[in-house]
Every structure is written in C-alpha cells, then in structure tokens.
Amino acid sequence: MNYLSKLHQTLDSGKFAVTAEIGPPKHSSAEGIMHHCDMLKNHVDATNITDCQTAIVRMSSIAAGVHIKKGGIEPIIQMTCRDRNRIAMQSDLMGAYSLGMRNVLCLAGDHQRFGNHPGSKNVYDIDSMQLIYLLRQMRDEKKFFSGEEIKEHQPEFYIGAVANPFADPFEFRVDRLEKKVEAGAQFIQTQCIFDMERFERFMELVRERGIDQRVHILAGVTPLKSWRAAQYIQTGVAGMMVPDSLIERLKNAEDPKKEGVNICVEDIKHIKENIKGVHGVHIMAIAWEEVVPEIVERTGLFPRPV
C-alpha cells in the first residue's frame, strides 16, 4: 500500500494519531510559526495550517505549510471555499503538492462577516462536500474539476474533512459525515469537544452506521485558559457547545490555566479509552501552542509513533 502521507500511514496502521494546529501570522515573517514548529515537532504527527481562520487575513496556509515542513512537521493544508473559485483552488492545490504538501483539509470557512474584511465578497463557487469529491477525482481519475484530463503529475492528496457534532440539526450531522466519506474524505477532524455527552451520542450513531470503519475520526480538543474564554465560546461562537459545569470548574479553579490543561488531558484520556471509533486527537490550542507537548506527554501519547 502506498501511503499518501505520513498521517495516512499513521492512521491506516491503526495508531492513535495526534495532530495540532498552527495559525499563520498576520505578517510576512515565518519566525513565529517556526518557533511553534520547534515546540511541537516531536509531539505531533502533523499540524493543520489554518486558512485565514475566522476570515482574518493571515499568511497563506500553503506558504506557512512550506515553512512548517522545512521545520520538520508534516503540514495539513486547510482550504476553505470562501476565498477561491474552482480555478484558484486547483491552481493552489497543484502548487501546494509541488511544494511537498500531502494532506488537505476541506472546509467551508467562516463567513467573512467575522473577520477583518467584512466588506469583502465571498466566493463559495463550490462547497466543502464538492471540494472533497473533486480532490478525489483529481487524484483517482486524473481529472480537473471540469472533467478535463490531467495528463500527468496529478496531485495526490490525503483528503481530510471536518465534522461538527455540536451543530444542528444533530441527527443530520452523522448523515452529512457519511456524505463526506462517500465524497472521498479519508480522515475527519471534529469541532472542539467540550460537551462530551453529545460527542458520545454522535459517535454512537457513527458506529451504528459503521462510518468509523470507513474513515479515521480525530476528536478535536481545546485547552481553555479561563472561564471567560469558555463562556465566550458558549455564547459567542456559532456551532460550539460548552456545558455550564465546565465554566464553573474553571471559575472555581485556583489556577485556571492549569485546570484548563487538566480538563483537556482528562478529555483525551476519556476519548482514547472509552469512545470506540476515534482514531486520534486534534489539539487546537488556540494561541497557546506551547501547552501541547505537556498535554501529549500527560496523555501517554508520547513519544510519537512512526
């Protein structure tokens, strides 16, 4: 079996994967991300490189991915449907492949209203489902999105997608995940899990349908620094759920940051030991990358395999 990427190999060989996230800077120096890269490289299998997340202009995901790769981590390029039409997407994807990128995560992207260019025009020429499908078609059938043949050197990405068990309608979330798998998604990263009970119900439905046998699901986790951060996510971010008990626990903690890490470690252990069908964790330590090694070590996921 030829593996498309190291992440592909890790997951297909049945190892519990660890991915993290690096957000490119709002400037044109790679110094900061290289620093994060050094910090994470021994503790993760790959890192996502976000694509202008929350619609704030940042260094390109692909460019940052090239830096990260040089720094020793396998990048997962994120590609949103917000900013590129199908022409730009294919062009960027081919370029990314030529630069050594091997994993792509397909997502719709946050609406530009949330970012620093709310007056911009969004694209949404294709949606994330179609992007998954077309990427697979490029790889497996050597075809451009239009159906035209790619004569040689088609990009062969390991295709990822996202799932949000906390968005509505809940019962359709598993259907939509299945649709993404049908379209060609090979690994799935979930939205940050704070409401473990809901995630367990989601995974139950996933297992009932056998979807976990067809795709590698990485559970998304986020260490929280304070109860205010938790409350903000609870009330201010669409598609996320934070139980009151979590806010209370952070509120009552002597050292909230330490408690945030403790919670994250507990959650990962719980997911790994008790929730069948989850094949890895995706640690989204937003603006707190330095805490990832500790989390990985404390959850017994260190040293990394492969």
Binding site: A108, F114, Y124, D127, F166, P169, Q191
Partner: peptide, 20 residues
C-alpha cells in the same frame, strides 16, 4: 444560505440559525 452551500448545512448552523 450565507455561503450558498449546496450540500449543507455547514458547521455554523445552531438552533436553526445561521452563524452570521
């Protein structure tokens, strides 16, 4: 749909409302 998605809903749908 604020993203004109043809295979929705996206992950920003909650309580029947759009993320925007």
């Amino acid at each position: 749909c604020s993203k004109s998605i043809l295979n929705g809903p996206c992950g920003g749908s909650q309580n029947g409302k759009c993320e925007i």
